[in-house]
Design a protein around this nucleic acid. Structure first.
Lengths: 203, 203
DNA sequence: GACAATACCAAGCAAGCGCTTGGTTTGTAA
DNA sequence: TTACAAACCAAGCGCTTGCTTGGTATTGTC
């Protein structure tokens, strides 16, 4: 269970819960349950059982069930914004930056944070109006990262469609991979998938 | 409220309910409610109220609430398979067929059947195991339509990535449009969006 | 070792859920 | 007009839900 340095610094800043802490463990399990069964079909009793406590004890850590959903989303975006930023920073060319972003997002979606990323996509409606605004603000930062790279590419004439459209297509296409992509020995790797995505865009 | 001939023949074959009938009206309202609030948060009382009857009376038309969800999905796939088939048949070249499919699917997703299409994507988990198998069978036919066109294109060297990957990327990208695409005067039209999608793939 | 503060449990409440029941209205056809 | 089925209503049952309450361990601090 090695933790990467980006996660570590976010934990230190208290922006993300330590997966080893009680709160962190609950959020991890919640993401898994929300993804598998859906938010509404996941009961507070399910959540409590997943971390080995009584259902009432949950409300010592979170005021409501919805607050758990919001925490899953907020922490996921925070972590992934940092991961994307780091990935993009390591590349030189605009094309390299885009490829790094695609690769990093595929990893987020299909790797360890996959459950939480799926929750972000599929459980949006389950959030109350107020929480949505809060999460949206964070999401705007995340999207800004993508757009700046895409606009740079577009400025150099390397994009075949408008940046904001390309981003939205990519959002759908990449998040959908969670429903079908399964890494197998000798099969399609995440790198291979990244290549296919880039190739599809003629890049 | 003009009905297109494809819909009419499906109604005649009893494969799809007439939107004017009691059953059809319920399915239309159900799709809207399931999409807006989610299946689990939509109560049988909501559904009944939407068509102006008592909640108990629903069970005269459907045995369970889930049967309503299944019916929405089954009829939606049936209708859209027929629509896609017709769209593809009207085009000559493989590229023309693909464009017709993209355009037709965008119309399904963002037009009248949009609610039901969204339900198909977002409420998959809400289906029981048994119902899923049934819906999957229909979905395979639908997907086969796409794949045959994409493989034809690939055979001619016009596709930059593998057909099944392209289809899966398109599935995600196109269905995601429902979350952001809003037709406006002077803005992006469905034809314009179709062009952007084709351009993105270098076609 | 005293003492808060934190984390938890056992029990259960009020509300809302899908669905059933027994009976009434409405439409249709002879 | 009669007969009968299909469509509906009014009432409510049994169960599950999110959350609360009052009390008990556990933990960290000086």
């Amino acid at each position: 269970m090695s933790q990467n340095p980006i996660l570590k610094s976010l934990i230190a800043e208290q922006l993300v819960s330590d997966p080893g802490s009680a709160r962190g463990r609950l959020l991890t399990e919640a993401a898994r349950l929300f993804r598998d069964k859906g938010y509404e079909r996941t009961t507070v009793r399910d959540l409590a059982a997943a971390v080995g406590i009584q259902s009432g004890s949950l409300f010592h850590h979170f005021r409501t069930k919805e607050e758990i959903l919001k925490a899953v989303m907020v922490e996921t975006i925070r972590l992934n914004t940092a991961l994307m930023q780091a990935a993009a920073d390591q590349a030189e060319s605009p094309r390299g930056k885009l490829k790094a972003l695609v690769r990093a997002e595929l990893e987020s979606i299909n790797g360890q944070t996959g459950e939480a990323m799926a929750v972000l996509v599929y459980e949006w409606r389950s959030l109350s109006e107020g929480s949505r605004a809060e999460v949206l603000e964070l999401r705007d930062i995340y999207e800004g990262l993508w757009l700046s790279v895409l606009e740079e590419l577009s400025g150099k004439g390397q994009l075949k469609a408008e940046p904001f459209i390309v981003r939205r297509m990519l959002t759908g296409a990449l998040s959908w991979t969670v429903t079908w992509y399964k890494p197998e020995r000798g099969g399609l790797t995440l790198d291979g998938l990244t290549e296919q995505v880039m190739a599809m865009m003629g890049l």
